[in-house]
Amino acid sequence: MKRGDRIMALITGAGALMMAAGLLMRGPENTASARTAEIVVGGQVLHQIALNGRPREIRVETPEGFNIIKTDGRGAAVISADCPDGSCIRMGRITRPGTSAVCLPHRLLLRIRDKRGNGEVDSVTW
């Protein structure tokens, strides 16, 4: 192993430890508090939907194509889109405040916020 390799391995190990610590310190999933799903296209908030248990489906037309978003008491998910990569659908249902699903070709962002209006910075889906 070369000298630089050891340094890189050290950086990787330290990063892995920090992430593991962050994962352990992450609180339990809190779905009881009032959360909202926000649909943002190109930086503009188009819809704000309270996640109060009533399932809803919303079709959003962007200049580049459409996305269909489904919300219910547990979270929100992009269930259909005509973008070429479909990564917003693969993101699945997002539930935690601060997490989001992105449809990059359409510049569409679906994000969860809690009542305070801010997502907790600690919440990241893996």
Binding site: M19, V40, G42, G98, S100, V102, L109, R111, G119, V121
Partner: peptide, 11 residues
């Protein structure tokens, strides 16, 4: 998408 919090997805 004009949202900085996406950056946490880098982890």
């Amino acid at each position: 998408v004009k949202d900085l919090r996406i950056a946490f997805y880098i982890l």
